[in-house]
């Protein structure tokens, strides 16, 4: 990419914002006629935090992001970013926010370089040296017009523009959609760099391994409601421990043990899940003298499936342990 000098370099060394809370929502609600897209969201995101925002299709993730950015107006509740009203002080908020949409609508006739320059000028700041580094890292040919780019390359343009802005808050909505695994690694590296610089990241994603690898905390949305939020360690306590054991003979019957569920016997192998104290299960398994015993914490994917596999009408509290 030819060097561009029109955009202003990042203003000084990024410092931590004055307030400790970057994003704060209270009772944030959005209804479309009879559909409640987001229901009373209370959420705090701290300075320098990387928050993973999870939920199935239609859970309200993009609605939340569009409310935070002031693209749509809440039916009820408030959202503040850097202590400013996300609706009333949009322009002041946006000066410190960089956004990567899930599907980039970029101007087809502009080249990648022109688009990056335009987005930088609109943003008001860009770290040009870092932008060039990102262009190399994401292996983007910026002389190509947007209309000739693949979906992944368009997404790279958005990502580079956002990351190079060194904005205090990065709002990323499915940012790696269309990226190949190598580029996904480049993305993870970039987010870690942003986090190390003290930038806050709000990451909506379906790639659970990505969230698991990057995020300090995870918020899970379901049907417009926040059903879980916490660190991965905290969330793991919500789900059952998986136990797999192989026996020399027939596996013992563990179905009656309190807290044990999802018992599966395949030949000499027993698989089950256990919530709460494991002493009774271990005693039953040990009595049968197992050849091998494996227990492991649930992955984020299993946590996610546990929460979404539950009946639709179960309130959030029912997931607690």
């Amino acid at each position: 990419m030819a060097p561009v000098a029109a955009a202003q370099p990042v203003r000084g060394t990024p410092t931590r914002p004055e307030t400790s809370i970057v994003i704060q929502t209270r009772g944030l609600t959005k209804r479309y006629r009879h559909v409640t897209a987001l229901d009373s969201l209370d959420l705090d995101v701290g300075v320098g935090e990387v928050l993973g925002f999870l939920g199935p299709n239609g859970a309200g993730k993009t609605t939340t992001i569009r409310l935070l950015l002031g693209l749509i107006r809440p039916t009820a509740g408030t959202a503040a970013i850097f202590g400013l009203d996300a609706q009333a002080d949009k322009v002041a908020v946006h000066a410190r926010v960089a956004y990567v949409p899930g599907e980039a609508a970029l101007w087809p006739s502009l080249t990648g370089a022109e688009t990056l320059e335009l987005l930088a000028r609109l943003q008001g700041q860009a770290d040009l040296a870092y932008r060039n580094e990102l262009i190399r890292r994401f292996d983007l040919d910026t002389s190509i017009r947007i209309r000739a780019y693949s979906k992944g390359n368009r997404q790279k343009v958005n990502l580079i523009a956002a990351l190079a802005s060194r904005a205090d808050l990065l709002v990323l909505d499915e940012p790696t959609a269309g990226l190949d695994p190598v580029m996904e690694q480049a993305f993870r590296l970039s987010i870690r760099e942003a986090s190390e610089r003290g930038q806050t990241v709000f990451l909506s994603s379906h790639v659970l391994s990505e969230v698991e690898a990057l995020c300090d905390r995870v918020a899970i949305l379901r049907r417009g409601r926040l059903v879980e939020i916490g660190t991965l360690a905290e969330l793991r306590h919500l789900s059952a421990l998986t136990v797999e054991a192989t026996f020399p003979g027939e596996p013992p019957d563990v179905t009656g043990i309190p807290g044990v569920s999802a018992v599966t016997v395949t030949g000499r192998q027993l698989t089950c899940q256990v919530r709460g104290p494991v002493a009774n299960l271990l005693a039953a398994v040990a009595a049968a003298r197992p050849d091998s015993l494996l227990s492991r914490e649930p992955s984020l994917e299993e946590l996610f499936l546990t929460i979404y596999g539950a009946p639709q009408d179960v309130p959030a509290a029912d997931f607690d342990g």
Binding site: T111, E114, E117, L118, R121, L122, S143, R145, A148
Partner: peptide, 23 residues
């Protein structure tokens, strides 16, 4: 067809109205 590659031209990229004029 237009050529898919081009040297960047950074004129009229500085504001929403400038980009509207350009496009």
């Amino acid at each position: 067809a237009d050529t898919d590659a081009a040297e960047p031209r950074t004129a009229l990229l500085g504001s929403p109205i400038a980009i509207a004029v350009r496009l």
